[in-house]
C-alpha cells in the first residue's frame, strides 16, 4: 500500500496512545465503589460517542461546503466521515447495552442520550441506503448532502424532545456522575485517544474514497 503522511503520523500516535489509554483505564483508574469494574466500560462508551459526534459534525460541514463549492472531494469527505460515525454509533449502542445489563439490569433503557444515538443511527443508515440507490455520481453527492444537513440539525431537537418525554415518564435515573479526579483525567485521555482514532479512521476511509473516484474516472477513459 502506498504511504500517506497524515495517516502514518496518526497511526504512530495511536500506537503510543492506545496501549497507554488501556493501561490507564484498567490499571490506574480506581475501581468504582458501587458499580465495580464494569464501570470501566464508561471510558470506552463515552469516548466512542464523542468520536461519533465529531464524525457526524464533519459530515454536516462537508455537506454544506459541497453544496457551496460543488467539488466531489467534499462529498467523499462527507460520506467517509458518515461511515466512521456510523461505525462508532453502532459500537456506542452495543457498549451501552453491555453497560445497562449489569448496572440497571436491563439490556436497553429509553434514556434520552441512548435514544438520541439510536435515532441518529437510523438517520445515517438511511443516508447510506439512499446513496446505494443512485447511479449518477453528482446527483448522489448533491442529494446526500441535503440528507447530511437535514439529519444533523435534527440532533438538538431530538435530544430536547426525548429529554422532555423522559421527564414525564421517569424510568431510570442515571447513577454516579461524580467522577473522582483520577477518573476524570483518565476520561480526558481516553477522549483524546478516541478522537485521534476517529480522525485516523476518517483519513483511512477518505483515501479509499478518493482512489475509488480515480478508478472510476480511468475506467471511463479506457472505455472511450
Amino acid at each position: 500500500m502506498k504511504k500517506n503522511k497524515t495517516i502514518s503520523i496518526l497511526f504512530f500516535l495511536l500506537l503510543v496512545m492506545m496501549p497507554l489509554d488501556f493501561y490507564l483505564i484498567f490499571k490506574v483508574a480506581p475501581t468504582e465503589r458501587i458499580m465495580g469494574d464494569v464501570q470501566r466500560i464508561f471510558y470506552l462508551h463515552v469516548s466512542l460517542a464523542s468520536g461519533a459526534f465529531l464524525a457526524f459534525t464533519c459530515t454536516f460541514i462537508s455537506s454544506i461546503i459541497f453544496l457551496w463549492k460543488k467539488n466531489l472531494v467534499w462529498d467523499s469527505a462527507a460520506s467517509a466521515s458518515a461511515e466512521t460515525g456510523l461505525l462508532f454509533a453502532t459500537l456506542v449502542l452495543i457498549t451501552g447495552s453491555l453497560w445497562a445489563r449489569p448496572i440497571w439490569n436491563v439490556w436497553w433503557t429509553w434514556d434520552p442520550r441512548l435514544l438520541t444515538v439510536l435515532i441518529l443511527w437510523f438517520i445515517y443508515v438511511g443516508y447510506f441506503l439512499f446513496r446505494g440507490g443512485i447511479a449518477d455520481r453528482f446527483k448522489k453527492a448533491q442529494y446526500s448532502a441535503v440528507i447530511g444537513i437535514i439529519g444533523y440539525i435534527d440532533i438538538p431537537v431530538i435530544r430536547y424532545a426525548t429529554k422532555w418525554w423522559k421527564s414525564i415518564h421517569p424510568l431510570l435515573t442515571r447513577e454516579g456522575g461524580g467522577l473522582n479526579p483520577v477518573m476524570k483525567n483518565v476520561m480526558f485521555f481516553s477522549l483524546a485517544t478516541f478522537l485521534v482514532l476517529t480522525v485516523f479512521l476518517f483519513f483511512f476511509r477518505f483515501r479509499l474514497a478518493r482512489i475509488e473516484e480515480r478508478l472510476q474516472k480511468l475506467k471511463k477513459l479506457t472505455e472511450d
Binding site: 441518529l120 438517520i123 438511511g126 441506503l129 440507490g133 443512485i134 446527483k139 431530538i158
Partner: peptide, 21 residues
C-alpha cells in the same frame, strides 16, 4: 427519494427518524 432507483420505498427510512420529535 424519487431520484433513487428504490423510489418511494425508501421514504420511510429517511423520513421516520427525522420526524421523531
Amino acid at each position: 427519494t424519487t431520484a433513487s432507483r428504490y423510489g418511494e420505498v425508501l421514504l420511510p427510512f429517511l423520513y421516520l427518524p427525522v420526524v421523531v420529535p
